[in-house]
Nucleic acid binder design. Sequence first.
RNA 1: GCGCCCAUAGCUCAACCGGAUAGAGCAACGGCCUUCUAAGCCGUAGGUUGCAGGUUCAAGUCCUGCUGGGCGCGCCA
Length: 561
Amino acid sequence: MKETITALLEDALATLKQQGDVPDDSDPTIKVEATKDKAHGDYATNLALMLAKPAGKKPRDLAEILNAAIPDDPTVRRTEIAGPGFINFFAATDAVAQIVARVLDAGDAFGRSLAGAGEKVQVEFVSANPTGPLHVGHGRGAAIGDSICRLLEATGYDVTREFYYNDAGAQIANLAGSVQARAKGLGPDDEEWPQDGYRGDYIIDVAKSYLAGETVHADDRHVTAKADPDDIDAIRDFAVAYLRREQDLDLKAFGVEFDVYFLESSLYDDGKVETTAKRLIEGGHTYTSDGALWLRTTDFGDDKDRVMRKSDGDYTYFLPDVAYHLDKWQRGFTQVINEQGADHHSTVTRVRAGLQALEAGIPSGWPDYVLHQMVLVTRSGVEVKLSKRAGSYVTLRDLIDEVGRDATRYFLAARRADSQLTFDIDLARSQSNDNPVYYIQYAHARVCSVLRKARAEGLAFDHTQAMSHLSRLDTDQEKALMNRLTRYPEVVAHAASMHEPQQVAQYLQDLASDFHTCYNAVKVMVEDDALRNARLALGLATRQVIRNGLDLLGVSAPEEM
RNA sequence: GCGCCCAUAGCUCAACCGGAUAGAGCAACGGCCUUCUAAGCCGUAGGUUGCAGGUUCAAGUCCUGCUGGGCGCGCCA
């Protein structure tokens, strides 16, 4: 529909150029928008407003000329000029109803497109170090990151989900020390307890499992414990595998799986850190000061230079970061999206600056970032800060256990990443109309319920009959619902290109609302076979779109509540 | 002090990379169950989009300066 109108406008514009009403060189991007207000028709364009200035005409006069030049088309019932110079398009009723056939025809594929044309995209998200259970912030990253992946897949991209972590640094040494201390029966209150050791109860579980000689299987590694409390290397390997497995289990329970686990240590093992350092030095972008090696990132937009090799000879985390992103580029990802907590926002300019200094032909704005703000968890209006297992923070597992996967995913993905999020546990677990997840799922279940009833009465859905009577769907509520269905592909395309899954959540709420309104106003199970089947078809189409949309958010679509 | 992000109804949030009368839900008030799930629907009320300027035919959206909040500013990650 939108494409049809755009094509009509292109025709009209060409006519105007030919007539000399508009300069030949004016080439505005033609914008056709779905209207917010029914009174403005179904679609509208501001083309006349855009062209008024270059044409040297009043917007409304130009709109008249433009409108007259729009060719006739069966899908457009009529057009009108409104406001300062908008042209409104009213769709033919039959054309709107055809959406039902299109949805049912496409099924799971409805809303998908080939816009990405198979381009390789990598999305890095969560990327938690294996030092403890995932917390709510990681959950937000997982929900947003995975939904972005699903959106990109739905728009034709070849997506790689990647998880980057450090299994060898200071934090890991601290983890090993903490587990060893627990294995020797020490607690955080003992004098010999390592400084800044991890105090959470989960360390006890790791230590017990290690001493019991258990074998753990994570997605990317398998380790059998040596059970020797004095072998710190063995403890470290085991602890990392153990916590990686914990995280994998949490992520699986959350419906998130990764294609690639990338180890920071591999960048050292493969010599990529060395190579990157050499390249930066040879490029002349480094200098030595106070015994440390600095990269002149200020040449590339950073507000201060950064240390890449410390005076003790070790590299800072910054250099492997650059090496890692160079590696991403070399793997052929022309588009990379990094989903991270906003507390790491300072790495953005730094990494980009480091990549520029490599002079590897990487675009200056590469990679893309989606940064999410903090999550505050509340129960009974009071902030929740602690979990028993992790000690100092609320874990993702806590939320999944308490409110379920669907509500957790929905709530964490339904807000713009750049606004702070308050996760209200009471709301998320409430099975009532103020909970948007249930509201949407209920709409889906209601359709299923009607279908069950139809089947039970021996009036199973007749697709052929329905398709030839779609024009019977002519009440205001049905038309509003069908219009909403029409918008779905645009919503998916836009949400994907903007990397904003919350737009899908918003749409689904609106769709569910239109459906419930329709459901209350229009009875499906009527005597008239043709009408009943047409209405069943509309229900089926709605169910399909809800299901498709929820899937983009990783939320299930239950048949009954 | 510097940098990034945010500020929209009493509350939680939308607003399709500048468009028409800024929209939902909750809370409040008034209605709707002999009828497909009332976990729902209909109606009423609620706003100078933090403040002040600017750009534009058109600004919640873009620019500048304030105010308030979050995060960051390490030879930690």
